[in-house]
Design a protein around this nucleic acid. Sequence first.
DNA 1: CGTTGAATTGAGGTCACTCAATCGCAGTGG
DNA 2: CCACTGCGATTGAGTGACCTCAATTCAACG
Lengths: 249, 249
Amino acid sequence: MTKEQERAHASLPCEKCPLRKRDLFRDFEQGELDFIGRFKKGDLAVKKGATVLVEGAHNPHLYTVLSGWGFRYKLLEDGRRQIVNYVMPGDLVGLQGNLLGEMKHSVEALSSMVLCVFEKAELFSLYREFPELAYDITWIASREECMLDDNLLTVGRRTALEKVAYLLMFILERSRQCGLIGNGTVSLTQQHVADTLGLSLVHTNKTIARLAERGFLKWEDGGCRILNPEALAELADWTAEKVAKRPFL
Amino acid sequence: MTKEQERAHASLPCEKCPLRKRDLFRDFEQGELDFIGRFKKGDLAVKKGATVLVEGAHNPHLYTVLSGWGFRYKLLEDGRRQIVNYVMPGDLVGLQGNLLGEMKHSVEALSSMVLCVFEKAELFSLYREFPELAYDITWIASREECMLDDNLLTVGRRTALEKVAYLLMFILERSRQCGLIGNGTVSLTQQHVADTLGLSLVHTNKTIARLAERGFLKWEDGGCRILNPEALAELADWTAEKVAKRPFL
DNA sequence: CGTTGAATTGAGGTCACTCAATCGCAGTGG
DNA sequence: CCACTGCGATTGAGTGACCTCAATTCAACG
């Protein structure tokens, strides 16, 4: 996605939001669109590598990802990092952690991103006026929990080989769903993979090499090309969810 | 908590719910109580070791834990188990995973438990009629996500010693908050600890022994007595949350 | 062309794993 | 009363997965 396209997004009203055209997302009533339009306070455009949210900070905003992607992570005092999940178009960011109070995690952009900005303080008026949208938010939170459960299973109980296979399929499928990529390519660094899976960088590299040897994938500068998704899925005991229409804000 | 007390719970109307008396939980309006009373379809009492929910099943219900505690877990094909979180009084169970559709995890009782039963199908009417309660549900989901993030950090990036210290403090504090225990004792099996932290049973045992040597805790048949919570907290880089009043259903 | 960030490789160490045996204790049934 | 059983905790031995440290390559960039 080019810089120009992002700027185009940023200036569009919600009714024309490019996400709404996608089959993946549910249709909205005019009243809902009007409300979301008022609820939306602006756009936030950030560059690749920028920090969108910082752990420990008080942030009055809530965001929906419009374009690009990033990751949520937490740090230990001595710098050890755990990536907790990835955020992609249509995802709600900032809901995790006490609704009010300080952020419990940070968010960093993996590509340039545009986010839709909302005020947490006005969230309750949404609940009062549009129960359907409130229900949607619960649906979204529920889905996030589901992903976290899966990630926990992966980090806790799968082997290194299974972990990498799982993560790549997880990201590939999610990004395909929300239209982030067309080809079978995932752009991230091996350090990200390591920090997601609780592995060291070196061991991650060797594990990826083993998968490449088998011809399941190919690592090419700053990204990964999936050559045999079926084999990876089998290795990881992973099956694609069939996607119903999803809500978003 | 004795069997008799549980039976007493089960027959009480929501207004008299013993949880509502606790300082921990927020006060409710009469209208809210009436609604919850209608929303509630009955009680579910299970014995220690019983399976409350099964992964893969379609379950039309949603539960609030009234007494006792248990754990949520997921399995891999070959039987490897990952405990994902613990459920305690006031927690909402069954929200995780697609609101409709099959369960993505199982729940097992660690003690005898009583749960309040609701119908998922009626959840939307709650959103329509009581936005405050709907907001509460989001708050609860948000808190769960927060715990999952923390657990992921623990499993992914902490050492075995830190992991055990963290888990024990996590459970101790949560159960103290909701009044599960008075003394500094946590009743679970080392296998549970292992399956929560992504460790083997043997290594978990040796790690616990190391903590016991240092005088931080003492393992006594089917449970653990915390002797030095400060030392454990420091080891785990863990700090107690100060608890504001919490909602629940 | 020097610098920087990511990927790769090798060596050596250790943390955590598996396998296997043992022990204590609480039932349970003869 | 005592063998038998099952479950959880404990221990030892040996192994392998994963780690750290350190060096090297490679591509991109100013």
